[in-house]
Design a protein around this nucleic acid. Structure first.
Length: 264
DNA sequence: ATCGGTACCTGCACGC
DNA sequence: TGCGTGCAGGTACCGA
């Protein structure tokens, strides 16, 4: 489900929570908790009010007005829902003075963490792809010998790009997923930089990609999946040249590309 | 220091 | 109908 555009959409849809006071924090599955026992965590959260709700890459950081931070990652299948029924995969429930927030995650790759200080996991991330300067992006590319697809997925390089948007950006830039990052010339670096900004902006405007069951906190689906040009289109014709889209594995992840538009 | 492979979990589509 | 296989938006950890 959630890469930068989806997490951005979810974060925006959490707006109604700002100013609400947490009455009860209930953790029903401890696997998704990071650091610390559930009782102490709940005690730290209960009674505090929601301040800013911000996205850093694929992380959501909720600042509590009386101190502390709630860090939420949606993993592959995590959802945050404003209200609704507790289900089989509901792992946390936050009840507010008005309304409730449920954390649902069938694969349990997501996580919730409380920390008094600004979370180190977020501090370690690379820059936002929509904020990084081209010169810094190009210079960082030059320093890395790994394949470009792997690098785009590396959250310490840029934060927020996942498998869908890596493939879509590489297609728009005409770059093969196995191209070596340090060997991309300035023109190709520029095309990639622009393609990343373009695809992420379009996807945010579309409310993200709803591949299976992704919805924002108010249950709304995104529709950027209808604009995917290569992702999960293996065997279908390229929208530019008609050549069949191919799928290969790069660092154990599916990579979809057009063998004609994205030459090595 | 950087890189690639693997583990972590559940659900679904598919072929037999 | 059921069973096995492969695949799925994620990160963290391990060894080379």
């Amino acid at each position: 489900m959630p890469e930068l555009p989806e997490v951005e959409t979810v974060t925006r849809s959490l707006g109604p929570l700002v100013g609400r006071r947490v009455v009860v924090a209930e953790f029903r599955n401890l696997r998704i908790l990071r650091g610390g026992d559930p009782e102490r965590m709940a005690a730290s959260i209960e009674g505090r009010r929601i301040g800013a709700i911000q996205r850093y890459g694929k992380f959501i950081v909720i600042t509590l007005r009386e101190g502390g931070y709630l860090l939420i990652h949606l993993g592959m299948t995590g959802r945050l829902l404003l209200g609704g029924a507790v289900g089989k995969h509901t792992h946390a429930v936050f009840t507010f003075d008005r309304g409730a927030l449920l954390f649902d995650d069938s694969r349990q790759f997501g996580s919730i963490q409380f920390s008094q200080e600004f979370p180190a996991r977020v501090a370690r991330l690379g820059p936002e792809p929509l904020e990084v300067k081209f010169d810094d992006f190009a210079a960082a590319l030059k320093r890395r010998k790994t394949r470009i697809k792997a690098l785009l997925l590396n959250q310490t390089f840029v934060r927020g790009i996942g498998n869908i948007y890596a493939d879509e950006a590489l297609f728009r830039a005409g770059i093969h997923p196995l191209a070596v990052a340090s060997r991309l010339n300035a023109a190709r670096a520029r095309r990639l930089y622009d393609a990343i900004a373009e695809v992420l902006t379009e996807a945010i405007d579309a409310g993200g990609s709803s591949i299976s069951d992704y919805v924002d906190a108010q249950g709304r689906k995104g529709f950027f999946q209808f604009s995917h040009r290569v992702y999960q289109r293996t065997g279908e014709g390229c929208v530019v040249c008609g050549t069949a889209i191919r799928r290969i594995l790069v660092v154990q992840r599916s990579s979809h590309f057009c063998p004609r538009c994205q030459r090595r």
